[in-house]
């Protein structure tokens, strides 16, 4: 049996684990949903520069008094940290396309074992739009998916093949969920960390994709801080 986790724990566990992926000085773009929370868990000895695609390099946490004309791409209110810069959308995506962003963290509807990603078009709903997702996942040097392990109905999201329209092919490098961490290299997926109280059998039952298991297999980083 998989452990029953409340929604807040699911979100904080995923965000806390993702936050351990960055090096000092990394430029990072956070998507909406769970990825937004990652900035709350950056280790104290690491300085991450948050970039938002609508034009901020060096975005800081929410202010006490919101400024409606200073928002992140997900609509979160921002502050400017010392040394930050304000830029236009074309330059912002120039940074992304040009490989100057170290990592992007995004949610996903589906990911497959070869690193294909589907995260912009919900079945049966036409025309919502991909926003900056296609640019981010093809431009950033490292693509991290932060998401719940299954759909709300318990269906697998980590698949052999994506069924929804793709955002990009073969771009995902790391998948972090509340149960596990998978790394994808050269089209092959490996389970690299597992959450406490989750067995390999439990995990397999909710993960359609084929993957190898790291040996030894460590417990998921950050869960000891919960």
């Amino acid at each position: 049996m998989l452990p029953e986790l409340n929604e807040d724990l699911v979100r904080s566990r995923v965000a806390r684990r993702v936050a351990k992926e960055f090096g000092d000085g990394d430029v990072v773009n956070l998507g909406i949903g769970i990825p937004t929370l990652v900035s709350d868990y950056i280790p104290e000895n690491i300085r991450v520069i948050f970039q938002t695609e609508n034009g901020v390099i060096g975005a800081g946490p929410a202010p006490e008094k919101p400024d409606l004309r200073f928002i992140g791409a997900g609509g979160r209110h921002l502050t400017l940290l010392p040394g930050s810069a304000l830029i236009s959308s074309d330059l912002s995506f120039g940074l992304i396309r040009g490989g100057h962003v170290d990592a992007t963290v995004l949610g996903a509807l589906e990911v497959n074992q070869e690193g294909d990603l589907a995260n912009w078009m919900v079945p049966g709903k036409m025309v919502p739009g991909m926003g900056g997702a296609m640019d981010l996942v093809t431009g950033a040097r490292h693509v991290i998916i932060a998401m719940t392990h299954t759909t709300k109905k318990g269906g697998a999201k980590i698949l052999k093949k994506c069924t929804l329209p793709l955002t990009a092919k073969g771009v995902v490098g790391l998948i972090v969920t509340e149960y596990a961490v998978f790394r994808i290299r050269e089209g092959k997926m490996e389970l690299v960390e597992i959450a406490p109280d989750v067995t390999l059998e439990d995990l397999k039952a909710v993960t359609e994709a084929e993957y190898t298991v790291a040996d030894p297999l460590p417990i998921m980083q950050g869960t000891e801080e919960e």
Binding site: S89, D90, S92, F93, R97, V127, G132, M134, D135
Partner: peptide, 15 residues
């Protein structure tokens, strides 16, 4: 009609 363009491509196409 709706033509969806990735945001970075949109910005660069306008530029």
């Amino acid at each position: 009609f709706v033509e969806l363009v990735p945001q970075g491509t949109f910005a660069e196409a306008v530029r």
